[in-house]
Design a protein around this nucleic acid. Sequence first.
DNA 1: TATATATTTCACAAAAATGTTATAATATTT
DNA 2: AAATATTATAACATTTTTGTGAAATATATA
Lengths: 217, 217
Amino acid sequence: MNILVVDDEKLIRDVIKEYLLLDNYKVYEAENGLEAIEIVKMNNIDLVIMDIMMPKMDGYTACKEIKKIKDIPFIMLSARSEEYDKLIGFDLGIDDYVTKPFSPKELLARVKAITKRNVKNVLTVAGIKLDNLAHEVYIDNELVVLTPKEYDLLKYLMENVNIALSRENLLSNIWGYDFYGDDRTIDTHIKTLRAHLGKYRDIIKTVRGMGYKIESK
Amino acid sequence: MNILVVDDEKLIRDVIKEYLLLDNYKVYEAENGLEAIEIVKMNNIDLVIMDIMMPKMDGYTACKEIKKIKDIPFIMLSARSEEYDKLIGFDLGIDDYVTKPFSPKELLARVKAITKRNVKNVLTVAGIKLDNLAHEVYIDNELVVLTPKEYDLLKYLMENVNIALSRENLLSNIWGYDFYGDDRTIDTHIKTLRAHLGKYRDIIKTVRGMGYKIESK
DNA sequence: TATATATTTCACAAAAATGTTATAATATTT
DNA sequence: AAATATTATAACATTTTTGTGAAATATATA
């Protein structure tokens, strides 16, 4: 998930960026509307968080221009809630609106709400298909039944193809930050998951001294 | 990575310090805002963890003063979550906020999130490319498999291109401060790493009487 | 509640990586 | 040029990491 944060204040971009990174979003930054347009042209941006008041090109205009290029969801930031009405009047097809000062947590919740709508429902790697709606996994179009943890693990690995994930990362993202058990519990789940993947067991690579990843060209 | 911990309670400083040391951060301590300012002036601090309620100079004021000296990320600690709003209103100069009582693990996770956000994911020197996400190294776009130590060593050298690194420095940053083995162990890893770098083996320069470095124009 | 299922931990074998020692090669100093 | 110090290489011992089967807990289901 690539998110573009547009604000002329570096400090605000940094705060937002940090929170987004905590949730494993990839973050791009722009200082103004013009820069934002360039970044959208060059990268596969999934969501834009944009301040309204900016130099060079204000948020209204930038939003309009970007929507011409690509229909991406927008969250607008603004200092005054009066601007809300103006924004509504604009009918720019924005998805959400947050007034400053805002709580990063709240912003993150809204980001999640929007990105969840766009989450891929079917992930495929080699002959493995994970259908997130049906909550089912198919291997060469043959249904295989996984345990919940196996499913979550496979899903997280497939969502992060080609990225090496440390045991710590896996634990905090699948088990939750408050899990205080043994690292090696992951190894066991990797083992059972591999067994279920049959001939595709080797798609899960061991990254020695680090963790695991799924590789795909 | 140098972290300054500011709290009037020694016990809290000690707990935080202990956890940070475990992760190889270098820790400085201050009892109050005034002391904190002095330490920031004198040392190369990368991150400040600061309590809000302190004698002599409170956290808000100290944070503002330090930001004037240097733009360092801040994590604020506070007993009451109501103070959160006040802090947000405080023009977002802070990077994160943790309410007491906090779990050290959680605090550490936030520290990591902040310190990691400036880390480059792909480093390139000559024909050597190190992809920190995939945890892979390519030489002329050909994948080479390194051992974990070789990988860490190459990564650290590439992060410090053109900087001569002493054996002591390498040991404490790659092996950890608690490694008490022989200096020469580095030579061995430099050797195997060079072997893996093939025609680029000479990119790792020996700095006689000192250590090693990677050179790049 | 009993039963089945899932998850976590443990123990040990196997594999891989690391550290150490010895020795050779090279550079520096006297 | 010889003596000394530093660095590189190779072989081997040690330690660490990973994979796996099985037992112990925990959780869900009938």
